[in-house]
């Protein structure tokens, strides 16, 4: 076996293991921590495919920012195994059926992929930042700009929702401004 194959196998084991552990943990904080480990192994997979930019952005955005907020919320809500909501038997059954059918579709889609072109490890420069940037800003510049406008509107929307002040808070903010 080549070194990259061995690495790939180890990484895959860790990522599947941490994904399973994320689902199995009773404590939501543990779930979040397992998910962070999963993001790390996915980044390592990107690195093996020579997509360095994608790997590091995955770390910065998901592991570094989004999961910190997740952890933040989970800790503030103080969720425990004892206060776990929803033990409805029927809902669990429905969840199992829905998840199972999704799995079925995914497996059938994966089975259809022709396997005569195995994934090439550590070759190609498609994931490097130079190539990626040129492709994004030349070939796909319109979709890129449109999606950034979408992001901007999402940010503004979040701000509008968060800024729904009651009258008493508004006057309090104004007095603070005046005094400072």
């Amino acid at each position: 076996m080549e070194l990259t194959t061995i690495l790939f196998l180890i990484l895959s084991l860790i990522s599947i293991g941490s994904a399973v552990m994320m689902l199995m943990s009773r404590n939501p904080v543990y779930s979040v921590l397992w998910l962070i480990l999963l993001f790390f192994t996915i980044s390592a997979h990107y690195l093996m495919l020579n997509a360095q930019f994608l790997a590091v952005v995955n770390i910065i955005v998901y592991a570094g920012a989004i999961m910190v907020l997740f952890l933040f919320v989970v800790m503030l809500m103080n969720l425990n195994a004892d206060t776990e909501p929803m033990k409805n038997y029927r809902l669990q059954l429905v969840g199992v059926i829905a998840g199972g059918s999704l799995l079925l579709i995914l497996v059938s889609a994966v089975m259809k992929i022709e396997n005569n072109q195995p994934v090439m490890l550590m070759v190609g420069d498609y994931g490097l930042i130079k190539v990626l940037g040129k492709t994004l800003f030349q070939k796909f510049v319109l979709p890129f700009e449109i999606s950034s406008i979408l992001f901007l509107s999402a940010i503004i929307g979040a701000m509008v929702i968060a800024k729904r002040d009651t009258p008493s808070q508004i006057t309090k903010g104004e007095t603070e401004k005046r005094s400072s």
């Binding site: 360095q52 590091v56 910065i60 490097l128 930042i129």
Partner: peptide, 25 residues
């Protein structure tokens, strides 16, 4: 000498908070 050096620095900086959050919780 990776060609995303500065992004790596940024990524690790963004992870630095986990030690504090995990310990504090």
């Amino acid at each position: 000498d990776i060609n995303i050096g500065i992004l790596y620095v940024f990524g690790v900086v963004s992870l630095g908070v986990y030690g504090i959050i995990v310990g504090s919780w």
